[in-house]
Simulated scan of single mutants.
Amino acid sequence: MINLCVLPSTASCRKAHRWLLEHRIPFHERNMNAQPLTETEIKHLLQYTYNGIDDLISTKSNAYHQLSKTTPIEDMPLAKLFGY
């Protein structure tokens, strides 16, 4: 089963949702506004990335712009990304 993590306000999330429905691919949808990823889940995802946190945070997102105001993401310790 595919886990689709979405921000409902984004066009790309709506497009992915629609594509999975059209192709009758079963999936579980998770609204990231209502249920954000936990620290454990982020660490798990990081194991599968090539570029680390850069593969998980969209440079177009508000979260990215808020975090990177003080320190570039690539120079930021994970503890700061997790909010402590």
Score class of each variant (00 low, 15 high):
residue 2 I to Q: 05
residue 5 C to F: 14
residue 6 V to W: 01
residue 8 P to V: 03
residue 9 S to L: 13
residue 10 T to H: 05
residue 10 T to K: 05
residue 10 T to D: 06
residue 11 A to S: 09
residue 12 S to L: 15
residue 14 R to M: 02
residue 15 K to F: 08
residue 15 K to P: 01
residue 15 K to A: 10
residue 15 K to M: 11
residue 17 H to T: 04
residue 17 H to G: 02
residue 17 H to W: 04
residue 18 R to A: 08
residue 18 R to H: 09
residue 19 W to C: 07
residue 19 W to A: 13
residue 21 L to P: 00
residue 25 I to R: 06
residue 27 F to M: 05
residue 28 H to K: 15
residue 32 M to A: 04
residue 33 N to V: 07
residue 34 A to S: 12
residue 35 Q to T: 15
residue 36 P to N: 08
residue 36 P to T: 07
residue 38 T to G: 03
residue 38 T to V: 09
residue 40 T to K: 15
residue 40 T to Q: 11
residue 47 Q to R: 12
residue 48 Y to R: 15
residue 48 Y to A: 12
residue 49 T to P: 02
residue 50 Y to F: 13
residue 50 Y to Q: 13
residue 51 N to Q: 12
residue 51 N to E: 09
residue 51 N to K: 12
residue 52 G to E: 07
residue 52 G to P: 01
residue 52 G to S: 06
residue 53 I to P: 00
residue 55 D to V: 07
residue 56 L to E: 01
residue 56 L to M: 07
residue 57 I to D: 01
residue 58 S to D: 07
residue 59 T to F: 10
residue 62 N to Q: 09
residue 64 Y to H: 14
residue 64 Y to P: 01
residue 64 Y to F: 15
residue 66 Q to M: 14
residue 67 L to K: 01
residue 68 S to H: 08
residue 68 S to M: 09
residue 69 K to W: 10
residue 70 T to C: 08
residue 71 T to K: 11
residue 71 T to I: 15
residue 71 T to S: 11
residue 72 P to I: 10
residue 73 I to D: 00
residue 73 I to A: 02
residue 73 I to M: 06
residue 74 E to W: 11
residue 75 D to F: 12
residue 75 D to A: 10
residue 76 M to N: 02
residue 78 L to W: 15
residue 78 L to C: 10
residue 79 A to L: 09
residue 79 A to M: 11
residue 79 A to Q: 10
residue 80 K to M: 14
residue 82 F to L: 08
residue 82 F to D: 03
residue 82 F to Q: 06
residue 82 F to P: 00
